[in-house]
């Protein structure tokens, strides 16, 4: 039995890596907005979902017209990023900014607003898809060469999985560069650290916050498209679990920390896949795969008990 489990391991780790990268990409959006506003933007799950829906629609309409799957995917990624990014900006403008302008200091108010926005977006998408296609459960139809695969040693690898990993790594490095090396990035960090002093530098915080939502939303949209390509079945509620787990990943990595979000996502992906695969065998079938989240989150709770600031988070100590 043990031999079988070991033989399976490379595949399990690879699958966990994929799932981890999906969580990581979504976590980037959570962590960016949290870094600037200390707001947990629960609507980010739905921004991700919108990206997934855009992905399905692009493949539905352009797939038959353009024979090359890579080209269609690039178009889907571009469109997903644009639509999700703009949507995130609109949400910020309509739902969060008015609360800020009123000087709401209660942190629960924007949080509950975010949850409300989530529900609204889910049902708006359901409504649109219902009108458009008479159904809101969508099936992704990928086209060659995305559906290709090969076996590396014992690991079954799909081309689309490689693309997912590649794009997430690009996103991580790109975002790190943007935040740490560009003028916009410095302004984002300045607003995150001290919004009122940022204004004395000539920075309009509203503009910077809006761009933060645009960037975070675009990353969420890209994650959504790749998720749809990878896991195929999409509906307006598909953002909930990945979103919740990505949020957890962001906290695990140290919320507000970009690399932390990536690391947190990858750790969570591994925990989940490993426990999902091995739990049934190790417990003689008493605990099925459905307990994978219990195990994964149990480990998370333990980790956070000992490192409440997250894996890469810093305990904030500042001189006054």
């Amino acid at each position: 039995m043990l031999e079988g489990l070991v033989a399976l391991l490379p595949q399990v780790i690879f699958d966990g890596l994929l799932l981890g990268f999906v969580y990581a990409m979504i976590a980037l959006g959570y962590t960016m907005v949290y870094g600037v506003l200390e707001l947990i933007n629960f609507a980010h799950s739905e921004i991700f979902m919108i990206g997934a829906v855009v992905g399905v629609e692009v493949f539905r309409y352009l797939g038959p017209a353009i024979p090359n799957g890579i080209v269609v995917l690039l178009l889907a990624l571009l469109l997903g990023a644009i639509i999700s990014g703009l949507m995130a900006m609109v949400v910020e403008r309509l739902a969060y900014r008015p609360l800020r302008a009123r000087g709401t200091t209660n942190r629960l108010v924007p949080l509950i607003t975010a949850i409300g926005v989530s529900f609204v977006l889910q049902d708006v998408v359901r409504f649109i898809e219902g009108l458009w296609h008479n159904e809101f459960k969508l099936q992704m139809r990928v086209i060659p060469p995305l559906d290709g695969n090969f076996t590396f040693l014992t690991v079954f690898v799909q081309y689309k999985a490689l693309i997912l990993i590649l794009v997430s790594l690009l996103m991580l490095f790109g975002l790190n560069y943007l935040v740490n090396r560009t003028k916009l990035g410095t302004a984002i960090r300045a607003v995150a650290q001290d919004m009122s002093t940022a204004r004395l530098m000539g920075i309009n915080p509203d503009v910077i916050i809006s761009r933060t939502f645009l960037i975070g939303g675009a990353l969420g949209g890209v994650a959504g498209v790749l998720f749809a390509v990878q896991y195929s079945t999409i509906d307006p509620y598909v953002g909930f679990f990945p979103g919740l787990k990505a949020f957890t990943a962001a906290v695990l990595g140290g919320i507000g920390n970009i690399t932390g979000a990536m690391v947190g996502g990858l750790v969570l992906g591994q925990l989940e896949t490993l426990s999902g695969t091995y739990l049934p065998t190790l417990t003689g079938g008493n605990f099925g795969t459905e307990y994978k989240d219990v195990i994964a989150f149990l480990i998370l709770i333990l980790l956070l008990l000992f490192r409440p600031q997250g894996l890469l988070g810093q305990v904030v100590k500042e001189k006054v």
Partner: peptide, 13 residues
Amino acid sequence: FPRLTVEENLEIG
């Protein structure tokens, strides 16, 4: 800005 470097503080100025 506590977590910007001295140089970044100047640049943001």
